[in-house]
Each structure stands twice: as structure tokens, then as C-alpha cells.
Nucleic acid binder design. Sequence first.
DNA 1: CCAGAGTGCTCATACGTATGAACGTGCAGC
DNA 2: GCTGCACGTTCATACGTATGAGCACTCTGG
Lengths: 340, 340
Amino acid sequence: MKAPRQSDVARVAGVSQSAVSRVVSGDIDRIPQETQERIRAAVKELGYVPNAAARNLRNKRNRLLGVHTFEAVFPHAREDFYFEFLLGIEERAEEIGYDLVLFTSTGTSDGRRRIYRDGTNRLNLADGTVLLGAATDREELARLWHDGYLFVHIGRREVPGAEIPCIIPDYVSAADRLVTSLAERGHRHFAYLRSGIEQEAYADRRAGYRNAVERLDLQDRSPGFRGEPELTEEWLDELASGPETAVVAENIGLAEHLRTGLAARGLSIPGDLSVAVLEGSGDEPGHRWDCLVIPRKEIGRIAIDALVARVENPDEEPVSQLVACDLVAGETVAAPRVKE
Amino acid sequence: MKAPRQSDVARVAGVSQSAVSRVVSGDIDRIPQETQERIRAAVKELGYVPNAAARNLRNKRNRLLGVHTFEAVFPHAREDFYFEFLLGIEERAEEIGYDLVLFTSTGTSDGRRRIYRDGTNRLNLADGTVLLGAATDREELARLWHDGYLFVHIGRREVPGAEIPCIIPDYVSAADRLVTSLAERGHRHFAYLRSGIEQEAYADRRAGYRNAVERLDLQDRSPGFRGEPELTEEWLDELASGPETAVVAENIGLAEHLRTGLAARGLSIPGDLSVAVLEGSGDEPGHRWDCLVIPRKEIGRIAIDALVARVENPDEEPVSQLVACDLVAGETVAAPRVKE
DNA sequence: CCAGAGTGCTCATACGTATGAACGTGCAGC
DNA sequence: GCTGCACGTTCATACGTATGAGCACTCTGG
């Protein structure tokens, strides 16, 4: 029960293989209606369907988009990092009639996933690929780019000498707006909680934060603002007795940590200190932080559109896109408390 | 900026393309160490990577497994039917080095997904496909089977004249054990809440339930047991005053409905009536029912293994597999209350 | 009646790889 | 010196598709 080929169809329809190819791939300028119908009938009769590998070898598109994540796609929690992205990716792919390949085969024993493994780059099975992952491997990105492979990356990634097209949450603007709104509520003395991880996404948050602080002439004497990622007991003591009324944290983990530290000192949020977070999806379980909302589903959709644009027009220069993030009010920001 | 091919490597290493192919794909019985090393060096120098499409074309396999669901895979923020299955599917596929194709392109305007559309069957892209979906289309299954396409179905599906290989939660045994454990706690008078939907999975539950009732010589005078899916006000009244001490519901929806009806009559669960459910994953939100646990992740893994077995050995007869379901204690079963 | 322009189709080839068959060489055994 | 054999390598081909070039034929206008 072998899958039928174009030549089988051709035999049934009484034409050549090329004619079949022309009809199935839409190059029908010079093929009369009547012949087309005969071929289509044969296609239907035999249940012919194009062979993706062969097509792809001939450098034709397969209406197949890859999704490569550098960690497992379906981790064990629903509030999963990828879930919302995938939602948008699937939704949009379905709308425009593309299938999705999840490149899972690239797993290694250490739990990381690599694109290039024992030599192979499976990705080229797809017409193009969306890459995501907190721990994206720079070297692989660079290599992929140099091989001329079509892809877009969700989240900013910078590789020297390569022009990676990224879909980027606009952290710069969001961080700026978040600080601005705190300032509008009367806060003047800020502290910044900085993650120990160095990543482009954090750099953007920092830039936005710094912009706003300088523009609005606010005060910040925190180590995070100076570039030190410490959240030490000493600093918490200083914070408790200092002039600061608002804290901006780079991520939720840091904010939770802060909450614990403050509680140990008898301080509450937002009663004693307002806290806002530069991360979130708007529906986290647990405490409702004032935060920005990364429109993950939207980003997934945009990534697909950007990828398809590249697939359909490979010569155009790839460009990165910023996606605006809303701010969402939670229960952790209030007017500044006057400290005596 | 095109990716190098074996022939490029061959030129650099001063050998033929076949020699390169032999070395990169491990057929090195008759290639001396020295030559191998020369070739490997050239591979490294050029950054050669095998072309997956060409490989696939050659050996007729894509190492690609399909996943086709008859509804959207990532339902929209809904308590998700597929999620756990996918977890297992992805996990296992990764372990054995297969990629996954999500067939999303097959969506139609009515929201349903069809395999055959304008005569073609996209599934052929993959070496084989896992099918799932509450609303699996029987006709398409039959056709797929007759076309000799390789697939397995998660959940029992019966189509006359076709031998569909299914991965099936063992509802028969689980329902039997569930009733048995209720009987062991002293229950003798049962009622059965039957869904209006006719599906193989429900038939299994009913069979298991009936087995246990007959074997243990229990009493059941409920419409559900007789084959009528009614949960009417009249019947609830009868239940409230009747001898029944335990109710078995086919799914959680029915059980919730029952709880409401009983509450309206001043009856509580499990104080007045014990209720157990023939559905569940063990971690539903809301009330903790005594129920069976469908090992979804496990089922996903088994499906992949079954599928790969078929792919690698297509001549063997396809077989269905039962997967055991655990029972889990909740808060809705107690010893029977003596009614006066 | 012929040049030129369509029209309807086929030929031939390339894409990159894997592999059975074949080839040439050197060497042992008789 | 010839046969047989092991070794190292290459040849040739197939996988299924897409497509520029080309062929045979018909029609149109002059």
C-alpha cells in the first residue's frame, strides 16, 4: 500500500508527470480546463498527496512552520512560559492554513535542546521556524543565520554579526510608563530590584526604567539601579528605613522575595511600600501584582505572520518588531506613605 | 551562502561523495581510520550538516509523527482536554527522537477539523499519526484505515469493517472496581447516572458497572441503569426517598448536576448519599470527587510507542491496548446512611 | 502560402542522500 | 604466474518533485 506518486496519477490521467506537477502546484497557465479536471479526478481517485520531503528538496514550500523551543514545550505547569505563545501560534497558523512541526527530536541528555545535533539540522524540513526559549543558544542562532535559514525569534536576541529578526515585547516603553504612572501617584523615591541574569529582555527593562527616572528627575539609590543584583538583608534594612516609597522589580520571583523580606521587618505591601513588577501575564495565581502584561498570545500570532512574510518573500530584509505591553493594576501599589 | 553538501566535503577531503555519506551515516566497515578522520575534518571545516529532506526522500521516512485533533489543540483558556495527552506525546517523542507535526491546517469554517479536504490528506506528511478528539469523525477514520494509513487513536472508536488500533483507558475494569469498593463499604442500593451522549467510552463504563452490579448482586432501579439518560426532577424525588445510598455518575458534569438537585432537596454528599464518578484526572478544580483517574500522560506515551511500533513494522497486525485507570478517593463517598 | 505567435503538452534535469554493485590494487597460497 | 580474496573506494542509480527549454500543432494576418 505505497503512497501514489505524481507518475501514478499521470498514468491514470493519461498525461505526463510534469503535467500533474503543474496542476497540483498551480502552474496552470497553459493547461486547459478539461485536462486539469482529468488530472484532478485522478488525484482524487488515487488519493495522491505531495511528498513533503521531495518538494522540500526541490526547494518548494510545504506550508509547514516549525516551532523550536530550547526547553520542553509542554512543561508540567499550566502557567507555563510557552503555553500562551503556542496558543497564538496555533491559532494563527490554523487561520492561514499552515501546519506546525514541533521540533522535539533535538533533545539531548542534559535536558537542553539543540538545533544542530549529531550533525543534523532537522529544521529545514519546515519552510521556516519560530524559535523561543529563555535559554536560547547564541551560537546556534548565529549558525542558523549564516546558513541562510528562515526563522524568527520570540524575544530579543542579539548576536554580533547577525541580524536576527525578533518579536520583542516593548519593555522599554512599558517600564517607562510604569514608572511614570507611579510618579503620577506621587512617588519620588524609587528602588530597582535587578535580576542576576543578564539577558536582552532585562536590558530593555533597565533602559526604560532609567529613561523614566531621569526624565522625571526621580531618586534611586538602590544597588539594582547601579547595576548590582543584590537583594541582601542589609539592603532590605536600608530600604525599610530609607526614603523609598516605591520598588520596581524585574520579575515576579524578585517581588515575592521582597515581600517576604519586608514582612519579616513588619512592613506590608502596599501599605508601607508600593511594588510594581516588570513581568506578568495578567492572570497569575497568587497575589495580584501591579505589573505589565506581556501579550503572549498576540506575540505568537505576530511571530507567525512575520515568519510567513519571510517565507513568502525571502529576499526582503528581515526586521524585528516591537509589541506594546499594557500595564495592569493589581493590589500592590498605593499612594506613597509619608515616613516620619 | 548555501549550506555545504556531501559533495563539497568530498572535494575538500579528496574522496567521493559516497565515502562522505558512508562516514557521516556510520557505514564505516571498510573505511580506514585515516580516511575517516580526513572526512570528519572536512565536515567540521565546512560546517556540513545533512539535509533532512534529502535523507527522508531517500529512506521514505520522515521521523515525523503527526498529531491530529478534531478540535483545536490548545483550547482557548478552557479546562483542557488535550493538554495532558500532549504532555506524554511530546515527552515520549522527544525520548525516541521523533518530531511532531500538529495538523492545524485542516480547520474548516465550522470550527471542526477534517482530515480529508478537497480530496487530499495532509497527514501523509508524517510517518504516522496519533488521532484524538471527543468528536472523532467515523467516516474519516474508516477512509483513513482503508487507505492503509498508519495511525493510532486515543480512546476507543469502533468502525464497522475497520480494525482501528486504539489506546483505551480500561473503563470496564475501573468501573467494576469502583462499584466493588462502594459495595465493600456497605452500599447495596445503587443508582446510575447516564449521559445522553452515545460513545464507546461510555459503553465501556456501562459494561463495567453492570458486571459489578450483577456479580455482587446489587440493586439498581435507576433509569440510567435501564438505559435512559434522564436526570429529571421526578427521579431526583424518588432518589431522595428511595433506598439508594450510592450513585455512580458517568462524568463530572452529571455529578455536579446531581449535587445541585440534591441540595435543593436538603440532601448532602456524602452525608445522605455517596457519589462516585467514572471520570477524572485526579486534580480537577472544585470539589474532590471520588473518581477514577485517566492516566492521560501515560496514554500519550503509550500512543507514541504504539504508533512507532507500527511505523517501524508496518506489516504486523495493529492491536488496541488497554491502559489501567487508578481509583482515587475524594470527599464524596462515605458509609451508607441508614434511612428510616 | 508563409512568418509569427500562441497553445498544449513533454523532455530532461537538478535537488542531496544512501547503497548495492563494481572496480582496482595488493597480497597470500599453491 | 595465476587464482582467490580482502580491502578501499567509486559508480550509478533511485527517492518524488518542479521547471526551463523544447516540440508539435493550430491559428492569424499579410
